[in-house]
């Protein structure tokens, strides 16, 4: 059974998504996919996302993991031979999804939530407690199991002075930071939650 082409979704993307129009320029070379450090995690690398948009596959695109995974490493954007700001498009799509009420990947959303809470509370990230809190969202037993699995990484981080044994303290000027975060939230652009 052949899938039907539908140009309306592409138009929707061009009109609504940040830098969405730029994907017209894609010549399907695939360097973005090959350059992405998270390519093994992505269900569709950026090039395929663009193909799906072109074909009008709204659901596949909007529900894809890929558009919420981008870590802004800029490799794809720097290398794209057509100068497409791939990062902006991927973030733009994720953002458009949220606007449209499409819930992002559960894990990512939950992690984002814990991340935000911790920043709001102490003004910085505690590399020990954040994964612990996130893991515990799964439930006590699986949470502890997941945390133990991460122990070797933790030890390495400790040995490389990337993590302290003592809990992180609140930063100075936490109040000012919270004001900024509140304002950002109000503007609706600052974060996913």
């Amino acid at each position: 059974m052949a899938g039907n082409y539908d140009p309306s979704f592409a138009k929707e993307v061009f009109d609504n998504v940040d830098s969405g129009e730029e994907i017209k320029m894609c010549m399907q070379c695939g360097i973005c996919a090959g350059s992405c450090p998270l390519r093994h995690e992505m269900d569709y690398p950026p090039r395929q996302i663009f193909t799906l948009i072109r074909a009008g596959r709204r659901d596949e695109v909007m529900n894809s993991k890929a558009i919420k995974l981008c870590t802004s490493c800029y490799r794809c954007k720097v290398r794209c031979p057509r100068g497409i700001p791939v990062i902006d498009v991927m973030h733009g799509l994720a953002h458009y999804g949220i606007k449209k009420g499409i819930i992002p990947r559960k894990g990512t959303a939950a992690f984002g939530g814990e991340f935000w809470k911790m920043i709001y509370n102490i003004g910085r990230i505690d590399e020990k407690t954040l994964p612990l809190k996130y893991n515990l969202l799964e439930g006590l037993v699986p949470g502890i199991k997941s945390t133990i699995e991460m122990a070797p990484m933790g030890i390495q981080m400790f040995l490389h002075h990337r993590m302290k044994l003592l809990p992180e303290r609140k930063i100075k000027g936490i109040k000012e930071l919270r004001k900024m975060l509140d304002k950002a939230k109000e503007m609706g652009k600052g974060g996913a939650n």
Partner: peptide, 9 residues
Amino acid sequence: GENTNTGEQ
């Protein structure tokens, strides 16, 4: 890289 015909890495 990506084999853009198959989508495979």
